[in-house]
């Protein structure tokens, strides 16, 4: 008596591999970079917007802000905005929007510090208190999230 081997089952179509998820630390790093690029963007845009005041055709309403494109600083701000956007896109794929957006508010700490350091704007005691509150909020959200999730 001879036996014949059963034919191999037809290969099932392979499901696409799921996207690689970043570690909690990696996600926090991405969000930190988003805030850093975002602060750089706003500082550049402020310098450019002031220097380009009055630029652009007369028929264009000034409040549209398109006259700002006459300044290289505004274009620098656009580059920083794109970098911030790309890092944000990567983070928002894997982290809940509420969490990633809340943590990206680190930019509200970096902007007053940058405006103080680079633009000569002042930081009052009340503003320092606000910065401390934002930092406390970031800590309250990030600490348990990173500890519980491990890998996001």
């Amino acid at each position: 008596m001879t036996t014949t081997a059963a034919p191999p089952p037809p290969a099932l179509p392979q499901a696409p591999a799921p996207p690689r998820r970043p570690s909690a630390l990696g996600a926090l790093l991405l969000i930190g970079l988003t805030a850093l690029f975002g602060a750089g963007s706003e500082l550049c845009l402020k310098v450019g917007a002031v220097r380009a005041t009055g630029a652009g055709p007369d028929w264009l309403p000034a409040w549209l802000g398109l006259g700002g494109l006459a300044s290289g600083w505004v274009w620098g701000g656009i580059v920083f905005t794109l970098l911030a956007f790309l890092t944000y896109l990567r983070a928002v794929r894997f982290v809940p929007l509420g969490v990633v957006f809340a943590l990206s508010n680190f930019v509200h700490v970096l902007i007053p510090l940058g405006a103080w350091g680079f633009l000569g704007e002042s930081i009052s005691g009340r503003r320092w208190l606000g910065i401390a509150l934002v930092l406390a909020g970031l800590f309250v959200i990030a600490r348990p999230y990173a500890r519980v999730e491990g890998r996001l």
Partner: peptide
Amino acid sequence: ATMVLKEKLTLPLALGALLIAAGVMLVSAS
């Protein structure tokens, strides 16, 4: 995000968001 996207609203997230908003308002009011 909680209402539309059905994300989970945890106590740390709610508390942290309130602290951040309060901090930002203080920064803007000063």
